[in-house]
Amino acid sequence: MDFALTDEQRMLEETLTRLVADQISPEQRRTMLAAAPNGSSALWRTFAELGLLHMPFSEDVGGLGGDGTDLMIIMQALGRGLVPEPYLAGLVLPGQLLALTANSEQQTRWLAPLLEGEHQLALAWQEIGARYDAFTVATQATQQGDQWQLNGKKHVVLNLEAAAATLVSAQLASGKLGLFIVPADAPGTSTHLYRTIDDQPAGDLTLDSVTLPLTNCLSEDVSDVLAEVLAVGRAALCAQAIGAMEEACDQTLAYLKERKQFGVPLSTFQALQHRMVDMHLHLEQSRSMAILAATSLALPASERDYKIAAAKAYCGESARFIAEQAIQLHGAMGMTEECYVASYAKHLVMFDHYLGDSDYHLETVSELLKVA
Rank of each mutant, 00 (worst) to 15 (best):
A162Y: 05
V156L: 14
E116T: 07
P37A: 06
Q120A: 13
E367R: 14
A89S: 15
G233Q: 00
H192A: 15
V156H: 13
G203Q: 06
D224S: 15
D224N: 15
V229T: 05
N103K: 07
D224T: 15
D133S: 14
G79D: 02
A162N: 08
I322L: 07
E220C: 13
L237C: 09
T252H: 01
T211W: 11
L121P: 02
L100Q: 11
S296N: 07
T166K: 03
L123Q: 04
Q28G: 07
E363C: 10
R30F: 08
A134P: 03
G62I: 03
E258F: 13
L272D: 04
L114N: 00
S190C: 06
L91E: 00
S223G: 12
Q120H: 10
Q120R: 10
V225G: 04
S286A: 13
M245G: 05
N216E: 07
L100C: 08
R234F: 01
Q140Y: 08
L214A: 09
N38Q: 11
T211G: 09
S58R: 09
T211C: 13
W125V: 12
F262I: 13
Q149A: 08
L355C: 07
A36P: 11
M1F: 11
M350Q: 13
V222G: 01
L158I: 14
G233Y: 01
W110D: 00
R109C: 11
L158T: 15
D70T: 09
L172H: 03
E246G: 12
T15N: 12
R234M: 03
L281E: 15
L100P: 03
E116F: 05
G90P: 02
M245Y: 05
P26T: 05
G203M: 04
A21N: 11
Q76P: 06
Y314R: 14
V222I: 08
A372N: 11
G243I: 04
A102P: 03
A298S: 14
V210K: 02
Q240R: 15
S169L: 15
E49I: 07
D133R: 15
A293K: 06
Q328T: 13
Y255G: 07
C315L: 12
A294Q: 02
A254F: 04
I24T: 09
E161D: 13
S302D: 12
L212Q: 01
G117I: 00
V277N: 13
Y340M: 10
S104N: 12
L230W: 02
D7C: 10
L212A: 03
A244I: 02
G66Y: 03
L53M: 07
V156R: 12
E338M: 10
L177Q: 07
A326C: 13
G68H: 01
K260P: 05
L368K: 08
L19P: 02
G263R: 02
Q240H: 13
D7L: 13
A227G: 10
R80C: 05
H347S: 14
